[in-house]
């Protein structure tokens, strides 16, 4: 297996490499790329290795006044260890914490999880539920910002162009609220080294009277892309989270299910995915 590797150290080097190379792939944590390359007869592209890039915007998790900026080279372990995220965005903390295994979390990056655009990406699903934005840098140095829901356009397909790189994801800090009801439910056979068969990310904010005033729901592994279940979230607005009627829980679960179009594959049947999605959706309100 022969291929060319370019390891830019600075943003300038990076942009130059992106300009110079016609066919290239980015390598960051390599947890997906190496298995993929092993399957190929001829690699046919260069690797722009991001592992040595020193640019802190790419690497850090940084809290501003209204947003948290997560560099795409931040690892899953960095997310897990971030106390502010753990406290304010349990959904993201939990999603990062159940990704693969402890060893892989040390190298797998946020950017890799997003750009692989797997329908079962755990960190991606959590970021969709909290309506993060993607900050995309082009080879000419221009930045554009798009809602994460528009980032995924199909299985393993994103809306990024060939001459672009995802630099950060920007998470809006929770609006004024009293309590956060937030979590990530991952269904699979094993407790680690598992790829979600069904996943549900929820991030619900309530006021002092336990009334829901913001609700983000995202589902994974049940559609060609991760889906933001907007109507399901809207359904919850104005309801009291501590006294939701079981009928409403089921109605909510049905709303979530409307966004699912699961397939049968090796890991589970479409029937199973729908059943489980319904069950775990209602479980978050029980």
């Amino acid at each position: 297996m022969k291929f060319n590797v370019i390891s830019p150290k600075t943003k300038t080097d990076l942009l130059k490499a992106m300009k110079n190379e016609t066919y290239f792939r980015f390598g960051a944590g390599y947890t997906d790329l190496i298995p993929e390359m092993k399957k190929m007869e001829d690699i046919g592209y260069s690797i722009i290795n991001l592992a040595q890039l020193n640019d802190q915007t790419f690497r850090n998790i940084k809290r501003g006044q209204d947003v948290i900026r997560i560099g795409t080279l931040a690892t899953a372990a960095q997310i897990v260890n971030d106390e502010f995220i753990a406290e304010n965005f349990p959904v993201l903390h939990q999603a990062a914490n159940c990704l693969a295994s402890s060893q892989i979390r040390q190298v797998a990056t946020v950017g890799g999880n997003l750009c692989t655009a797997s329908p079962s990406g755990d960190i991606s699903c959590a970021l969709v539920s909290i309506q993060a934005q993607c900050e995309i840098l082009s080879e000419s140095g221009n930045l554009r910002l798009i809602p994460i829901a528009d980032f995924f356009i199909g299985p393993r397909k994103t809306s990024m162009k060939n001459n672009e790189i995802l630099r950060s994801v920007i998470v809006p800090i929770n609006v004024k609220h009293h309590e956060v009801h937030s979590g990530f439910l991952k269904v699979g056979t094993r407790r680690s080294m598992e790829c979600s068969v069904v996943s549900l990310a929820y991030h619900i904010l309530t006021d002092k009277k336990a009334i829901i005033h913001k609700a983000g729901i995202a589902i994974g592994a049940v559609a060609p892309t991760i889906r933001y279940a907007e109507e399901a979230g809207n359904f919850l607005l104005g309801k009291n989270i501590s006294s939701i009627h079981p009928d409403d829980s089921e109605l909510f679960a049905n709303e979530v299910l409307k966004y699912a179009s699961p397939i049968s594959d090796l890991r589970a049947s479409a029937w199973y995915r729908s059943e489980v999605l319904f069950n775990i959706s209602k479980s978050i309100l029980e």
Partner: peptide
């Protein structure tokens, strides 16, 4: 499923 990804051998956490 000729791989550990889909052949569900259990891990230490199980």
């Amino acid at each position: 499923n000729p791989n550990f990804h889909n052949y569900k051998m259990l891990t230490a956490s199980d």
